[in-house]
Design a protein around this nucleic acid. Structure first.
Lengths: 125, 125
DNA sequence: CGGTATCCCATGCGATACTG
DNA sequence: CAGTATCGCATGGGATACCG
């Protein structure tokens, strides 16, 4: 039943809401943030230090999107100065696993990748 | 031994070559291309049709980077007109798996993500 | 068919300064 | 400490046209 719309929800489809979420999750810093949070709850500056090179602006922006998408929860202790920490939600924990797999995989395969690049560049010039 | 440089190779490090590769693999279209190629060898236009919304320019550019990094192999049949197809290398097959996991996961979890977004937007306005 | 070259604009993102 | 606001530019990337 249901006739058409047998097309599965997939980021492959340009106008599927999935595509938007996909772009959030794979945007420049989000993936690294999710991997970093895989080790547990972190405060803003600690997170910024782990994800080397991220500006506070982009970190803040990425976090807001991730919170909105339900991947990360935000905890504020109303002290002075305030302490704010971020943590993966159950949903976030699920995605962070394949993401960490990618991150680790690159680290482990860098030798092969380097070799491929050199082979390519040699043939090219 | 080896003193410092106990720091593992990781995309978390801003100046690690890993970071560059990480950015290649997670750039806007590359991840979708790798997932699309997970189903097997595809020709240029077939690939473009699967990855909805990608321009030929960006597809071509992404593919060149992926070939250089050793993730994809390029096959040319010197007929007229030429037939060019792309295929995952063993290396590419390895990364494409966690990538497909992410892609599929988003499709499966869209309901929960939608709900989170609505909760967030409700509290916000 | 499978690209590359050129043009050009949107926006991602960094730098800096300021706030509760 | 944990951000937001503003500015400004680099560059990602789309549109179009052309080539082997």
């Amino acid at each position: 039943m249901a006739g058409r719309d047998a097309v599965k929800e997939s980021p492959m489809n340009a106008d599927c809401p999935c595509r938007t979420v996909f772009e959030h999750l794979t945007s420049r810093w989000s993936l690294l943030v999710l991997v970093a949070l895989g080790d547990g709850r972190l405060r803003f500056h600690a997170l910024r230090d782990r994800v080397e090179g991220v500006s506070e602006k982009m970190l803040s922006q990425s976090l807001r999107t991730l919170v909105r998408d339900g991947m990360v929860s935000r905890h504020v202790e109303p002290t002075i100065p305030p302490r704010v920490s971020y943590e993966l939600t159950p949903l976030g924990k699920e995605v962070s696993m394949p993401m960490r797999a990618i991150s680790d995989w690159i680290g482990n395969r860098m030798t092969d990748i380097r070799a491929a690049q050199e082979r390519f560049d040699a043939g090219r010039m």
